[in-house]
């Protein structure tokens, strides 16, 4: 299945699920999704806070250019969530002191 129809998403047609964790919390992702998409589709739209003003950040450029979406993946810091595909058992960590979805 490579096309989508109105009102549907591809994800519902993709069999299986990938179990990952975000800051210790279990999340279900779709095979082939990148980490950014897995977080956003679980309602998490910010996962990093800026160094100076502690402002929330998530996806911005979506293609690996801006580095706004950095996460720690299985202990590897500074990985771009928009580029790394989810894998079963992946442990994802953000760096937002006040974790969670949007306000």
């Amino acid at each position: 299945m490579s096309t989508h129809s109105s009102g549907e998403t591809w994800s519902v047609n993709t069999p299986g699920a990938v179990n990952v964790s975000f800051d210790g919390r279990p999340l279900v992702a779709v095979p082939g999704q990148n980490i950014g998409a897995a977080l956003v589709s679980n309602g998490i739209t910010a996962w990093r806070s800026t160094r100076k003003n502690a402002r929330p950040r998530g996806l911005f450029c979506g293609i690996g250019v801006c580095f706004d979406c950095l996460v720690t993946v299985d202990g590897e810091a500074n990985q771009r969530a928009c580029l790394v595909e989810v894998q079963e058992g992946m442990e994802i960590e953000g760096s937002c002191p006040d974790q969670g979805g949007r306000a």
Partner: peptide
Amino acid sequence: WDLPGVMAAGGIQAFIKANGILPG
């Protein structure tokens, strides 16, 4: 423009093409 939820237009398209879902 630095608020989460603001994206590059191409980033939204990349998100849809790569993941098959919408970012919002």
